[in-house]
C-alpha cells in the first residue's frame, strides 16, 4: 500500500480526503440529528452550479462552489422561515433546479467534459495543490466554529424550543450551521463528488447511531468510520482506477450495513 504514496497527487488527495472526512462526519452528526439529511444533497447540487460557473468563466471552481452553496443554504433557510412550504419540497425544488441550471451553464459554455465528470463523482487525480490549500484555509475556520459551538448545536438538535427558552441564540446558530455545512460540502466535491458527498455526511453518523452511545462517542465513531472510508476508498480508487467518491461511499455503506447487523435489536 505504501508505494502509492510515492505519487505526489496521492499525497495531496489523502491530505484533502482526511480533512474532508473530519469536516463531513462532525458536521454530519448535527445534520442527521436535526433531520437535515436531504439538505446536504441539495447543497451539493447547488455547489455544482458554482463548479459550472467556475469552469465556464475560468475561475477556481471550488471557490465559486463555496459561494453558491452558501447562498443556496441561506435561500433555503429564508424560504423555510418566511413561506408556508414543506421543508422537503423546498429542498427538492432547489436540488433539481440547481442541477438543471448547472447543466445549462456547462452546455452553453461548451464545457461538458471529463472535468465536470470528476466533480460529479470525485477524482483523486484531479486534486491540485490549490485545492488542498483552499480546503485547509476554508475548512479550518469551519471546523473551529463547529467545535466552538458544539454544545449549543447539540442542545438545539435535542430540542430547539427548550434551547431557545434557555437563552441560546437558536436562529443565529442554525444559520451558522447551514453556512458551515454548505462550505464543507462545496469543499468536498473534489474528492467525493457532488452526487456522493451527501453520503459521507449522513452515513457515518447513521452507522454510529446504531451503537447507542452518548454524544461524544457517537461523534468519535462517526469520525472513525469517515476516516476509514476515505482512506480505504481512495486506496481502492488508486488500485482499480475507479472514481474515488464511489469507492468511498461503497466503503461507508459497508460499514453501515455491518453496524446494522452487529447492533440488531
Amino acid at each position: 500500500m505504501t508505494e502509492m504514496f510515492a505519487y505526489e497527487f496521492i499525497q495531496r488527495a489523502f491530505v484533502a480526503g482526511i480533512f474532508i472526512a473530519i469536516l463531513a462526519s462532525i458536521s454530519g452528526t448535527f445534520i442527521v440529528l436535526k433531520r437535515y439529511s436531504l439538505m446536504s444533497e441539495t447543497l451539493a447540487h447547488s455547489a455544482l452550479v458554482g463548479v459550472a460557473v467556475g469552469l465556464v468563466a475560468g475561475y477556481n471552481p471550488l471557490w465559486v462552489a463555496v459561494i453558491v452553496a452558501v447562498l443556496s443554504a441561506w435561500l433555503i433557510e429564508y424560504l423555510r422561515s418566511n413561506f408556508s412550504l414543506y421543508s422537503d419540497s423546498i429542498l427538492s425544488i432547489i436540488l433539481s433546479g440547481s442541477l438543471a441550471l448547472a447543466v445549462v451553464i456547462v452546455s452553453l459554455g461548451g464545457a461538458f467534459n471529463n472535468s465536470l465528470f470528476s466533480y460529479l463523482f470525485g477524482s483523486i487525480l484531479s486534486v491540485s495543490n490549490e485545492d488542498v490549500v483552499t480546503i485547509a484555509i476554508v475548512g479550518t475556520p469551519a471546523l473551529a466554529l463547529l467545535l466552538l459551538f458544539s454544545k449549543e448545536l447539540y442542545f438545539i438538535t435535542y430540542d430547539e424550543e427548550v434551547a431557545k427558552t434557555s437563552g441560546i441564540k437558536v436562529k443565529l446558530l442554525n444559520f451558522l450551521l447551514v453556512t458551515v455545512v454548505a462550505i464543507i460540502i462545496a469543499l468536498s466535491i473534489r474528492v467525493v463528488g457532488s452526487l456522493l458527498i451527501g453520503a459521507l455526511m449522513v452515513i457515518p453518523t447513521s452507522a454510529a447511531l446504531q451503537y447507542r452511545v452518548g454524544f461524544k462517542n457517537t461523534i468519535l465513531i462517526s469520525l472513525f468510520f469517515a476516516l476509514f472510508s476515505v482512506v480505504f476508498g481512495m486506496s481502492l480508487s488508486f488500485y482499480f482506477s475507479l472514481p474515488s467518491g464511489a469507492t468511498i461511499v461503497l466503503t461507508v455503506i459497508s460499514l453501515f450495513i455491518l453496524s446494522l447487523i452487529v447492533n440488531k435489536k
Binding site: K151, V162, N217
Partner: peptide, 29 residues
C-alpha cells in the same frame, strides 16, 4: 427560567444522549 415542555418524556429513542449529556445541557447557556 427552567422550562419542561409537554413532550419532554417522549424523547426520540435513538437520540445519542446519556442522562448526564442531557442534564449538562442545562449548563450550556
Amino acid at each position: 427560567i427552567g422550562f419542561v415542555p409537554q413532550r419532554a418524556s417522549l424523547v426520540d429513542e435513538n437520540f445519542p444522549a446519556t442522562v448526564e449529556d442531557i442534564v449538562k445541557m442545562g449548563r450550556v447557556a
